[in-house]
Each structure stands twice: as structure tokens, then as C-alpha cells.
């Protein structure tokens, strides 16, 4: 009987082990479903059209917009350059010949300015990517999901940079690198190693939040942080072709209205 009992005990043990494995397998399946990075249905629905909120986000003076995170902690040489530019702009504005910007030439705003949503933005997403369309200048931004950021030296500079994202719970975390160095954010330049990290999440069904962190060892003493907030909109985004048919830019980069 002992051998029989032993066999019986062994069978019981085997059964327990098998049952345990089966349970673990089932639990693993359930867990995988809940955390599947490739299932768009399991994530908060950030898709739709969004406009900045509150309405007075821009401030009162169009020629001196409010910086979203307060003054930037610029390294000394960049702080001096910025102060000099502001003086130059003030003189040019007073003379009625403001200094032309990239937008005077109908060039894209680039990152992170595009996310300021001067005009509405639309978010479209699937399992592999999140696409952001900006009405202003018909800008497009592609965030590839669950892919490693390639080495920086393999990335060409772009207006919107290169973005990679992944979900952390209810938050879409996006890293952006290699934004063209001629792109400006509130007139502030950046270095080739600037890294933008965004944490995008719904604060309510119709309220989207984007916490932005800019790290730039060349230009900033300390990382620059701010939050863009958006409200859901039923506006249908329209075509926006910039024809640049009204501005003449002289050799000093100053703009005047073409009378043609």
C-alpha cells in the first residue's frame, strides 16, 4: 500500500501542480489583457479635437505672450541673447517693422509650440501610433508607440522632432528628440540634445492635460516645466494653407505689409 499511497500522493501533487499552473496561466492571460500595450481599447480615449483652456491662456499682449511655466532658467549667454532680442524686437515693433519669425514665412511651429494649440488640435490613435494634427499650418506629429528611440546620431532634425510613446497606466508618456535648432519656443533657442517629455492624460472625459518637461543641457540651467490644458471641442478642423501673400521680409529680417 505504501507504494500505492506514494503513487496516489504523487498524483495528487501532480494535480495540484497542474492546477496551479493552469491558474497561473489563466491569471497571466487576464493580466496580459489588462496591460496589453497594443490594445487601444484598454486606454483612456484621448482621441478627438481639443482646444486650449482657459480661454485667456495666451495673455493680453500678442507681442508679449505669457510663458506657460514662468521665466525660463537660461544659461547666462542665452539669457543675455534673449534680453538683446527683446530689445531689438521692441525697437522694431515701435518702428512698425516687426522682426519676421518662422511663422511669417509660413513654416511650421515645431515642438513643443505645436502643442500650445494656438488653433485646435486633433488626436487620432491606434495600437501603434498617436497622430496629432494641428489646424494651424496643417502640422502633423507622429508618436510611435512602444518603440525604442533610435540613437540620436541616426535621427535627422525635424520641426516636430522624433517622438516615441508608451502608456503608463492612464498616462501617455512621450519623449521627443532632435527638434531642428532653428525652431524657437517663445523666442528661446535650444540645443541639438534638447529632450521633451510629455505626460498626457485625461483629467475628465472632456479635459486633457499635458505635463511637459524640457531638458536642454546647452541652453537651460534647470529643466523647464509647464502644463498645457485642453477642453474637448466639437469643431471640425479645417484646411489651413498658408500662402504668405501679404508679407515682405527685407534683408534685415524685418517684415512689412506687401501692397501688391
Amino acid at each position: 500500500m505504501k507504494p500505492a499511497r506514494t503513487t496516489h500522493t504523487a498524483m495528487l501533487l501532480l494535480g495540484v501542480v497542474l492546477a496551479t499552473f493552469a491558474g497561473m496561466s489563466s491569471a497571466a492571460t487576464a493580466s496580459k489583457t489588462q496591460t496589453d500595450r497594443h490594445s487601444v481599447a484598454t486606454r483612456p480615449d484621448i482621441s478627438g479635437t481639443w482646444e486650449r483652456t482657459p480661454d485667456d491662456w495666451f495673455g493680453e499682449n500678442p507681442d508679449d505672450p505669457v510663458h506657460p511655466g514662468g521665466p525660463m532658467d537660461l544659461k547666462a549667454s542665452y539669457a543675455a541673447e534673449y534680453a538683446e532680442l527683446k530689445k531689438k524686437e521692441a525697437v522694431a515693433n515701435a518702428a512698425g517693422t516687426p522682426i519676421a519669425t518662422t511663422s511669417s514665412r509660413c513654416l511650421p511651429e515645431g515642438m513643443p509650440t505645436m502643442m500650445a494649440a494656438l488653433f485646435p488640435i486633433q488626436i487620432i490613435r491606434d495600437d501603434k501610433q498617436v497622430i496629432i494634427l494641428g489646424e494651424y499650418l496643417q502640422q502633423v506629429r507622429r508618436i510611435l508607440l512602444n518603440q525604442a528611440m533610435p540613437p540620436t546620431d541616426e535621427l535627422d532634425p525635424k520641426y516636430q522632432g522624433h517622438s516615441r510613446g508608451h502608456w503608463e497606466g492612464d498616462t501617455l508618456v512621450v519623449e521627443t528628440q532632435r527638434v531642428r535648432t532653428d525652431v524657437r519656443f517663445y523666442d528661446v533657442p535650444h540645443g541639438p540634445a534638447m529632450k521633451i517629455t510629455e505626460r498626457i492624460r485625461l483629467r475628465g472625459p472632456d479635459h486633457l492635460e499635458n505635463q511637459v518637461l524640457i531638458e536642454d543641457p546647452q541652453v537651460l540651467n534647470t529643466p523647464y516645466r509647464f502644463t498645457f490644458e485642453y477642453k474637448r471641442s466639437n469643431y471640425a478642423i479645417q484646411e489651413y494653407v498658408c500662402e504668405n501673400n501679404q508679407i515682405v521680409i527685407d534683408s534685415e529680417g524685418k517684415a512689412s505689409l506687401s501692397l501688391e
Binding site: D55, W57, F58, S104, Y235
Partner: peptide
């Protein structure tokens, strides 16, 4: 925006739902 809202008091077309949109391209300093 304030300028536009002020103007809307004068207009005969609807301005009640002015969206918080902005213009761009060049400075008002012209």
C-alpha cells in the same frame, strides 16, 4: 481677443460664440 469681443458689440453678424482662436503670421506692431 478683447479687441474682437469689443468689436462684436458693433457687428450685425453673430459673434456670441467667438472661439478662443488666434491669428498668427506677423506682429500687430505693423
Amino acid at each position: 481677443r478683447l479687441f474682437r469681443q469689443g468689436l462684436c458689440l458693433l457687428t450685425l453678424i453673430t459673434c456670441s460664440a467667438l472661439p478662443p482662436v488666434a491669428s498668427a503670421h506677423h506682429s500687430f506692431a505693423l
